[in-house]
Design a protein around this nucleic acid. Structure first.
Ligand SMILES: [Zn+2]
Ligand SMILES: [Zn+2]
Ligand SMILES: [Zn+2]
Ligand SMILES: [Zn+2]
Lengths: 157, 157
DNA sequence: AAGTAGTTGCAACTAAGTTGCAAGAAAAAC
DNA sequence: GTTTTTCTTGCAACTTAGTTGCAACTACTT
């Protein structure tokens, strides 16, 4: 029951977001947006496809849809380790700064710190106009601190 | 003269760094380290090869050398826009935080803010042990603020 | 219901990075 | 200073992540 309600809500929210940007409410867009809204960490194209499952759109469509959603500021990228691009809903950040992302060096999981705040940076060189900032944090998550077998891995890139 | 002196110094520094890690002082390692030490912004494999010029090692060697240098903490990665990996000498950062990187949204150039400092982040969720932080800044560089033709480009990824 | 403009899937392609392995070069041993 | 050992390199082939062109399709408009 509760599941179904949440499900409905995310789909409804996806529709509302598309409407607000005057974008067509196509099946791929609704599914992709819903997948992003349902999770609380940034996802790659492949992870989005996995979560949608067998009805997932082609990867080309996923990338093109993400580009469209980024152009309309419904989605943005997080810059994490590794070569893949990570996407998440915009609108969980302030205009001048994204929420920080924490990646555990032991288990590799990334968490969004929605409520953490980046204080103003000191000693910005003269002449630069800073408009936006993003913070990447690394360390150990609660699980990996407790589990003695988990030690930070110095060469995971 | 001054050029030659600086040149000599960077090569000497590269040798010293390799010695300090008990790594063999091979031609590719010296050239790659020197290329990184000579510049003041992070470089991709391709940019390193360009700067070394015709005597540049194979790209496989460049990547493998960078991995080796990272394992010995002589080099680390910067996480910037785009798909390529960027490398720079370690040792221009504090242990708990890298120096911030500023990327101009208009011209795309990246600058290292060696002296800027990230104040402690507030509201880190309980249970997480933060060991390291990296800050990415975006905005307009001095040139692009003055040049009226330069406007921030919302969709350069 | 028909028209139109925007969207999708497929196949082929590109860019960035990795792997296996034989040949080559540093350092160590003699 | 030559030999031996061990580490390092270059090449070719491969993988992964993302992009492009284009014909078929579908959401919205009239
Ligand atoms: Zn962990
Ligand atoms: Zn996030
Ligand atoms: Zn600029
Ligand atoms: Zn830097």
């Amino acid at each position: 029951m509760k599941q179904k309600t949440m499900h409905k809500n995310f789909l409804q929210k996806a529709e509302d977001l598309l409407t607000s940007c005057q974008l067509r409410k196509t099946h791929p867009r609704l599914e992709i947006l819903r997948a992003l809204l349902q999770t609380n960490c940034p996802l790659t194209q492949e992870q989005i496809a996995e979560r949608i499952g067998s009805r997932s759109p082609d990867k080309t469509t996923i990338y093109r849809t993400l580009m469209t959603l980024m152009q309309h500021n419904l989605v943005h990228q997080a810059y994490l380790k590794g070569r893949a691009r990570y996407f998440e809903p915009a609108g969980r950040c302030r205009a001048d700064q994204c929420h920080p992302h924490f990646t555990c060096t032991s288990c590799g999981k990334t968490h969004c710190f929605y409520d953490a705040e980046i204080p103003a940076v000191r000693n910005i060189p003269a002449g630069f106009l800073v408009r936006h900032s993003q913070l990447r944090l690394e360390g150990l998550c609660a699980n990996c601190q407790n589990d003695s077998a988990c030690q930070p891995d110095p060469d995971n890139s």
